[in-house]
C-alpha cells in the first residue's frame, strides 16, 4: 500500500503548486487572496504529511488565518479605491522569468546533491532530550537548545508591533471600523466560542511540553479569540490602558530578559536553564510568550488605539 502514500504526497504537492500559480497570476486581487488562503490551508496539510503537527497548527492559524485577514483588510482599503491592476511590462516579466528559472534549476541541481538518507540532528536531540525540561522535541529545541532564536523571535514580533503602532499613531492606518453591527448570531457564537478558545489555548500551551503544541500556537489561538471578541463589539484589547497594553505586548521579551538576566547573575550561560525547576521556568516563559503573541496578533489586526475615552495624561 506504499503507492497510496506517494499518490497522496504528490497530489498535495501538485495542489500546492496549482494554488500558488492561481494565487500569483489571477488578475483580480480578492481572488488572488482567496487562493492564497487556500494555499495556506493545503500548506498545513503538507506539514501534517511531513509529520510536523506543530507547524500544521501554526500554518493554519498564521499562514491561512492571520495573513489572510490582514491581506483582505489591506486589499479592501487599497484595491477598492484604485481598482486597476498595474500589469508589469512584458520585458520585466521575461527577465524575472529567466532569473527565477535559473535559480530554480540551480536549486534542483543542489537538491540532487543533498544526501537522500541523513538523520541531521535527530539523534543528538533524542540523546539530549532527557536532560532538558520537556519531552517534546520541537519545544525542547525552541526553548532549551536554541532558546536564543526564540528570544530574538519575540523581539522581532515586538518590532513589528512597534512599527504598526507608530503608523496607527499617525492615523495612517485607519483601524478597521467594523461596520458589522454586533448581530445576535455573531455575539451568540462568540459567547459560545470564547470559553472554548480560552480552554483550548491553555491546553495547547500545557500540551507543548510533551506533545505538539506550545507557546506560539496557543498565543495565535488566543489572539484569534481576541479578534473574534473585538469583531463582536466586545472591546477588550482596544480598551486596555496604554501602559498595560505595552506591558502585555512586551511580556515575551521581558520574560526572556528576566530569565537570562538572573541566569547571567547566577553565573550560568545566557540561556543555560538550571537543572532544578527548569520545567516551571519553561512553562512560565511559554505563558509570557503566549500572552504577548496573543496581544500582538490582536494589535496587528484590529489595532489598539480605538480611543473611546479621551487620551489620559501619563504620570
Amino acid at each position: 500500500m506504499i503507492g497510496l502514500e506517494v499518490v497522496f504526497d504528490v497530489s498535495v504537492a501538485v495542489l500546492l503548486v496549482v494554488l500558488a500559480l492561481e494565487s500569483l497570476y489571477t488578475p483580480n486581487l480578492f481572488t488572488s487572496i482567496a487562493f492564497f488562503i487556500a494555499f495556506g490551508l493545503v500548506m498545513a496539510l503538507a506539514w501534517v504529511r511531513l509529520q510536523a503537527p506543530d507547524l500544521a497548527l501554526a500554518e493554519a492559524a498564521v499562514g491561512a488565518g492571520l495573513t489572510g485577514v490582514l491581506l483582505l483588510d489591506a486589499a479592501r482599503e487599497i484595491a477598492a479605491v484604485r481598482g486597476v491592476e498595474r500589469t508589469p511590462r512584458s520585458m520585466v516579466r521575461l527577465t524575472s522569468l529567466l532569473v527565477a528559472a535559473g535559480v530554480g534549476v540551480a536549486l534542483v541541481a543542489a537538491l540532487l546533491e543533498v544526501p537522500p538518507r541523513a538523520a541531521g540532528l535527530a539523534e543528538a536531540v533524542r540523546e539530549a532530550l532527557p536532560l532538558t525540561a520537556v519531552e517534546h522535541g520541537v519545544t525542547s529545541v525552541l526553548l532549551d537548545f536554541r532558546a536564543l532564536d526564540t528570544f530574538f523571535e519575540t523581539a522581532v514580533l515586538l518590532l513589528a508591533v512597534i512599527t504598526v503602532l507608530v503608523l496607527q499613531a499617525h492615523q495612517h492606518v485607519r483601524i478597521i471600523p467594523w461596520e458589522l453591527s454586533a448581530s445576535p448570531v455573531l455575539s451568540g457564537l462568540v459567547g459560545l466560542l470564547a470559553p472554548v478558545v480560552l480552554v483550548f489555548s491553555g491546553y495547547l500551551l500545557w500540551a507543548g511540553t510533551h506533545a505538539p503544541g506550545g507557546a506560539f500556537q496557543a498565543g495565535v489561538l488566543l489572539g484569534a479569540g481576541g479578534i473574534l471578541l473585538e469583531l463582536a463589539g466586545v472591546h477588550t484589547v482596544s480598551r486596555l490602558p496604554r501602559r498595560a497594553l505595552r506591558w502585555l505586548l512586551s511580556l515575551g521579551v521581558a520574560g526572556f530578559a528576566l530569565l537570562s538576566g538572573t541566569l547571567l547573575l547566577a553565573g550560568r550561560g545566557l540561556l543555560e536553564l538550571p537543572g532544578a525547576g527548569a520545567r516551571t521556568i519553561v512553562i512560565a516563559l511559554e505563558i509570557a510568550i503566549a500572552v504577548s503573541v496573543a496581544l500582538t496578533v490582536v494589535s496587528l489586526v484590529v489595532g489598539s488605539n480605538l480611543r473611546l475615552e479621551p487620551p489620559e495624561q501619563e504620570p
Binding site: L180, S183, V185, L186, G188, L189, L192, L193, V196
Partner: peptide, 17 residues
C-alpha cells in the same frame, strides 16, 4: 460542532451583509 457552528454563523453574516 465548532466547524458547523462557525460555518453557519459565517454564512448568516455573509447573507446579512
Amino acid at each position: 460542532i465548532v466547524a458547523a457552528l462557525s460555518g453557519s454563523t459565517a454564512c448568516y453574516l455573509m447573507a446579512h451583509f
